[in-house]
Design a protein around this nucleic acid. Structure first.
Ligand SMILES: [Zn+2]
Ligand SMILES: [Zn+2]
Ligand SMILES: [Zn+2]
Ligand SMILES: [Zn+2]
Lengths: 146, 146
DNA sequence: TGTCTTTTTGCTATTATATAACAATAAATT
DNA sequence: AATTTATTGTTATATAATAGCAAAAAGACA
């Protein structure tokens, strides 16, 4: 899915929810959408500065915060980076990420079975999950065969 | 398991592996073992400073690095904190953590089924896992019933 | 439209987390 | 004892994220 159609989809979601998809937020959204892999907040800020010279850390973190809340973007905790979600709309979906340590490629998986397994395991321990982080590091298809 | 017996177990493991369990490393180990929940590196540093006034960030991070490599300690990526492992020995075991956002309690689960499910899912995508991060946030038994 | 309220942004500073680089010690090896 | 390797001390710096407050913009409503 290309950046433009992702943007349109996001605009639609915001319209339906009454969320304000402002200029900065759109700019950051597009920068993320045009990235193939994950990107750090300060790298993103550097890119944003080419469009808005006055941008500061708070600018990018606020935008990322908004985009995360809408479910457009996921934070990758283990590498302090952010990545565009390609299945947003079904908001708050559980996320499983496969992160290649060789090439940096990140694949987002959506396994409801897996989510259920985690929930069940938690319930066995009397624990109720509100948010889950599943990040697998290793070697992707391309990098393994090399 | 109390701090002293954990320490003895760790000493044994180090002896078997020929790893040098130095003074600083033992001090940090004991500080962690006496913590019930997770603890941040700089909080730990503050505690260490009461024993070794000259301790610096590098001191604590080096010790944590050593302890992690031995499998004595796990880093919790989503909250930038560290926690003593209570099942070390079986080194490099997969870790699943249940983190209570109310009381801060962290429960370490060991589900081989879950590990297998994740590996299988990854393999389906041609991905080989070297290290996995599974951190579930939510409400623990005690905090849910309140 | 004008007024009021809420949300968003701009801006400065600061906090929090983690590592680099290199010299000095200490321990292990020969 | 001499040499090599691992660990520590020390200073500085890199990297990541938030606090606080005023200005501006947008939304709500008479
Ligand atoms: Zn997603
Ligand atoms: Zn790869
Ligand atoms: Zn463990
Ligand atoms: Zn709790």
């Amino acid at each position: 899915m290309n950046a433009e159609s992702l943007l349109q989809q996001a605009q639609l979601v915001c319209q339906q929810k009454g969320a304000r998809f402002t200029k900065v937020r759109e700019q950051v959204f597009l920068l993320l959408a045009n990235h193939h892999g994950a990107v750090g907040a300060y790298d993103l800020l550097a890119e944003l500065k080419e469009l808005e010279a006055a941008a500061k850390p708070a600018t990018i973190y606020r935008a990322l915060d908004f985009l995360s809340k809408q479910g457009f973007v996921h934070k990758i905790e283990s590498i302090n980076a952010f990545i565009m979600c390609h299945h947003f709309g079904e908001c708050n979906h559980p996320v499983q990420l496969l992160i290649c340590d060789q090439c940096g490629h990140v694949e987002e998986i959506q396994s409801n079975n897996f989510d259920l397994a985690l929930r069940t395991m938690a319930e066995t321990n009397g624990f109720t999950i509100s948010h889950q982080i599943v990040e697998a590091h290793g070697s992707c298809k391309n990098c393994t065969n090399v």
